[in-house]
């Protein structure tokens, strides 16, 4: 949620790429994979934070520089043969069947820790996201919140990379929040909706992948994208209907508007008002439509 509000949607995409670097290096050095992934992602997150603090660069540039470098590092290690045991495909596209009991434990622990941190720093995170300048003036430790935020995103990436894969993680971070923003207008409902949509679409996606026998990560993302498309279309439609309704209600008492037009062109207005069948040649289509619509609705109400 915060990611989308901070216009950092691509940080998920970027950080997940650096996971590849971390995992490849970890394998080459014979470390624990999670350790490698965590180290790489955290390092990238903190580097992004540092680079962004230079005023000349925005966060998108920082993400682009840092995480592609980490990704390239991973590719170099893999291609050198030392990371030969890396299952590149599983890493890139996710594989739920590779998830083991230990992975679940890691997920649970990290999710718990993240939840506690978010709970305690909720207001400060929100204030920092909305208006970092004033937050700093009003005593919020903005720098610490930026770091915390990046660490949290890194944690999300690390725990979900097994299932979703490097290339698909951005969707899991961004789509539910983007969808919620289309619908809800205040913060708590937006967040609740984002969390709900995220969990529900993950479950639905997994079922789809199980029954249709396709990749788990991709089917989750497709379910989410479908939900987003549905909601986007729905809100657009609702806005259209609302606009039409507003126009109709505006047209009913809009007689002064018509009179204003008749003041400019008295003859045209009386003609169009008198005969509906033969619109005057001089009337523009817009004026014509407005007057007929106004007439129609006013007759309906009377």
């Amino acid at each position: 949620m915060f990611v989308v509000l901070r216009r950092m949607s691509y940080i998920g995409h970027g950080l997940s790429h650096s996971v590849l670097g971390g995992v490849a290096v970890a394998i080459a050095l014979d470390w624990n994979l999670y350790l490698g992934a965590a180290a790489a992602t955290l390092l990238s997150a903190l580097l992004i934070d540092r680079v962004t603090r230079r005023r000349q660069l925005h966060v998108d540039a920082a993400i682009g520089v840092v995480t592609t470098a980490m990704f390239a590092l991973g590719v170099v290690v893999v291609s050198s043969g030392r990371g030969g045991r890396v299952n590149t495909e599983a890493l890139l596209f996710g594989n739920i069947l590779g998830v083991q009991r230990a992975d679940v434990a890691v997920v649970v622990v990290m999710a718990g820790a993240a939840a506690v941190l978010v709970f305690c720093c909720w207001k400060a995170l929100l204030f920092t996201t909305f208006d970092p300048t004033v937050a700093a003036v009003q005593g919020v430790r903005v720098g610490a919140m930026e770091v915390l935020f990046n660490v949290l995103v890194a944690a999300v990436i690390i725990v979900s990379v097994r299932v979703l894969g490097v290339l698909l993680i951005a969707a899991a971070v961004v789509i539910p929040a983007a969808l919620a923003r289309l619908v809800a207008r205040s913060f708590t409902p937006t967040l609740a909706l984002a969390a709900g949509v995220g969990s529900a679409s993950a479950a639905a996606g997994l079922y789809v992948s199980f029954w249709v026998d396709v990749a788990s990560g991709a089917s989750i993302v497709l379910v989410q994208a479908a939900a987003f498309a549905f909601v986007a279309a729905g809100t657009t439609l609702a806005a259209r209907l609302g606009l039409r309704r507003a126009r109709r209600t505006a047209a009913a008492p809009a007689d002064p508007f018509c009179e204003e037009g008749s003041g400019d062109q008295p003859r045209t207005a009386t003609e169009s008002g008198g005969s509906d069948t033969a619109p005057p040649p001089s009337a523009t289509p817009a004026v014509e439509a407005r007057s007929t619509r106004g007439g129609g609705s006013s007759s309906g109400t009377s």
Partner: peptide, 18 residues
Amino acid sequence: PLTVEHAVLLGLTADSRP
């Protein structure tokens, strides 16, 4: 996505409970 009241309350963040 903030309400007016919430936006004002954020001003209290530093002195508010966690």
